[in-house]
Write a protein that binds this DNA or RNA. Structure first.
Length: 403
DNA sequence: AATGAGAGCAACCGCACCGAA
DNA sequence: ATTCGGTGCGGTTGCTCTCAT
């Protein structure tokens, strides 16, 4: 009954990997590829379980992973995606290039989760703990809507996540074609909905880029928004349909059938090495365009540049298309989400700098803090930081076209 | 200076699940 | 329908670091 163990545990080594083992694994995979993980240890001369080899490779040895301190943007992304997806680390990792799901999970458990808890925010629901006691009709409805839509997006992202990696190669070449310097937005879909969506995305991305440029003076993020006709980036999840009680949602509404908006942030990580693991020292810096249009191939692109598709921002567009029933969409939703997205993101970044500089207890001079942490309003600033996140998430279902 | 407790962190393990054969 | 290889995730372990005593 059940599966046979992945390998014979007897005589196999456990525990930390030695440099020699790492070297063996690296050399073997570089020469032969991993092939069957089960058969790999014997072929590579390792006294390890195949799974252990796989984990070691995927979480540590793989050349296209980055280690070290998480950036502001990465923290934001983790928090926001966690609010939507929960502990779906692989899906979250899809949006954090070069970070492994395991690393994100660890970072969440050791840092972000505790910070949320400290602020009296439930790290699971991302709501203030006191809110759990509130259950007015409206709030229940919102909660239900959020849950429902989060589930939908979760499913969508899960499916999308699988394709992102595969499409990265294509997206790099696609981006090469679409990517003139500076902001470029090409919305193939017609209609005001799409237009406003594109504007929203641009605004959102602008604030994100602003956040980055804040942490790397003189550097600018580059946004490429590709809507509609991005055939290669087409997400098959566009064709998902609701089941059970889920309200019918035509994801193609206003977006063009079978198309998903994709946003790509492109930059480079200063100090990144050509090969091997990128170990950051202190805060990473996001540089501008640089190599964004100069990606000879996938491998080099992964090593030298930063590029990802943001489904969180996807949501900003796709959700606008037609979440029904109409009662979920106040008329002022566009304005609201704009404010939330713009002010929210900006404030998050600002407040996070304060948060960081103080949470680090001055142990290191975080250039991002800009000496802003006078400490007098630390608690309130900190609270604003998380409240902004909560607003962003909690206001989404009924107050914004994000959902 | 020595030491012990607690926190932080990296990595592994077990289990469940999925898709392909 | 079953088996197998691979993946994702929660939980756990053990080492290192920090800080108070």
């Amino acid at each position: 009954m059940g599966r046979s163990p992945c390998c014979d545990k007897v005589g196999l080594k456990k525990g930390p990997w030695t440099p020699e083992e790492d070297q063996k694994l690296l050399v073997y995979i570089e020469e032969h590829g991993h092939g069957s993980w089960r058969a790999l240890p014997a072929k590579a001369g390792l006294q390890r379980c195949g799974k252990s080899c796989r984990l070691r490779w995927t979480n540590y040895l793989r050349p296209d992973i980055k280690r070290g301190k998480f950036s502001l943007q990465e923290e934001q992304t983790i928090i926001q995606l966690h609010a939507l997806l929960g502990n779906r680390w692989s899906a979250i990792a899809t949006h954090l290039p070069k970070r492994t799901d395991n690393e994100i999970k660890n970072y969440w458990n050791t840092h972000l989760k505790k910070r949320l808890a400290k602020m009296g925010i439930d790290p699971i629901t991302h709501k203030p703990k006191s809110d759990a006691l509130l259950s007015t009709d409206g709030q229940s409805k919102n909660a239900a809507n959020l849950s429902h839509m989060a589930q939908w997006e979760s499913a969508r992202l899960e499916a999308e996540a699988r394709l992102v990696r595969e499409s990265k190669i294509r997206s790099h070449s696609f981006q090469h074609q679409l990517n003139p310097p500076g902001f470029a937005s090409s919305a193939s879909a017609s209609g005001s909905t799409s237009a406003s969506a594109a504007q929203l995305v641009n605004k959102t991305a602008w604030n994100s880029a602003t956040g980055w440029s804040k942490s790397s003076e003189g550097n600018s993020g580059v946004l490429n928004t590709a809507l509609g006709a991005a055939g290669d980036l087409e997400s098959p999840t566009s064709t998902l349909t609701f089941s059970e009680n889920a309200p019918p949602r035509n994801i193609s509404t206003g977006l063009g059938v079978g198309s998903m908006p994709m946003i790509q942030f492109v930059g480079t990580i200063s100090g990144s090495s050509q090969t091997g693991i990128i170990k950051e020292e202190g805060e990473q810096e996001w540089k501008g365009l640089g190599s964004s249009t100069n990606l000879p191939d996938y491998k080099e692109g992964m090593e030298n540049s930063f590029s990802f598709t943001s489904s969180l921002h996807d949501m900003a567009i796709s959700m606008e298309g037609g979440w029904t029933p109409e009662s979920l969409r106040p008329s002022s939703s566009h304005v609201n989400v704009g404010n939330v997205m713009e002010e929210g993101f900006t404030n998050l970044l600002l407040d996070d700098s304060i948060d960081r500089s103080l949470s680090d207890s001055g142990k290191e001079s975080d250039e991002n803090s800009g000496g802003s942490g006078d400490g007098s309003d630390y608690y309130e600033d900190n609270k604003n930081y998380w409240n902004s996140i909560l607003n962003l998430v909690n206001s989404s279902p009924s107050d914004s076209p994000m959902f």
